[in-house]
């Protein structure tokens, strides 16, 4: 499976709009500026996945994409553990970094992920003129690669390629780094691409 340059650009732009909305919500919650890098869209062979995501300990909040597009897809908010802790500290007005992640942190991480990913999906769906909703969130605090294996197993059941969209968000003031990732089956990718093509042909 290969994307044409136009398809990769269109998908990148779609993700860009989504991520920008997600970044805005994070910026409001932290009351700080958020920088966003240029999103990448890659088709990766499952065997190479360990080269994209390692086994460092992170917080992952995972959402299945529900709604108007056929196929399977997931959106993930990933944050290195120290960043996640600085984020909840900032929000809850604490500064203790020398502690274990507690229930309050977990609720805050899930809630922030929920707000960001809802904004991400809402912005992309609105652009496409469809409805895409996040499923209830699931949290995992463990190795990044380990957390994502179950998602890969879902989207790569019948293929060895996964479509991965990713963009990094950074809050310099509080030293918080996060990544938004989207995993799609070829089916959902195809459907999103035809919606995008329909938009472009209307002279977007």
């Amino acid at each position: 499976m290969k994307l044409t340059e136009i398809q990769a650009d269109a998908l990148g732009e779609l993700g860009n709009i989504g991520a920008a909305h997600a970044a805005t919500t994070l910026s409001q919650m932290l009351m700080s500026d958020i920088e966003m890098d240029v999103p990448s869209v890659d088709i990766i062979d499952i065997a190479q996945f360990y080269q994209c995501v390692g086994d460092e300990k992170v917080a992952l909040v995972v959402f299945r994409i529900d709604g108007g597009v056929e196929g399977e897809g997931f959106v993930v908010m990933m944050m290195p553990l120290p960043s996640a802790m600085r984020m909840t500290n900032t929000m809850l007005g604490m500064d203790d970094m020398d502690r274990e992640i507690n229930e309050m942190d977990q609720s805050a991480i899930i809630e922030i992920g929920n707000i960001m990913v809802s904004a991400f999906l809402d912005a992309t769906a609105t652009l496409l003129g469809i409805v895409m909703l996040p499923s209830p969130p699931a949290l995992c605090i463990d190795m990044a690669h380990a957390g994502m294996e179950a998602l890969i197993a879902e989207v790569a059941m019948e293929t060895n390629d996964v479509v991965i969209f990713r963009t990094n968000l950074t809050c310099g003031q509080h030293a918080i780094d996060g990544t938004i990732l989207m995993f799609l089956t070829p089916e959902m990718l195809g459907n999103l691409l035809s919606l995008l093509e329909a938009l472009t042909s209307q002279g977007m």
């Binding site: 062979d45 499952i46 065997a47 080269q51 086994d55 380990a146 294996e149």
Partner: peptide
């Protein structure tokens, strides 16, 4: 990597096993 295998005498490793 996911879905790969190796047979032989070299050391081998798998990183980040989840499911």
């Amino acid at each position: 990597g996911i879905g790969e295998y190796y047979v032989g005498r070299d050391a081998m490793t798998t990183i980040g096993l989840g499911s």
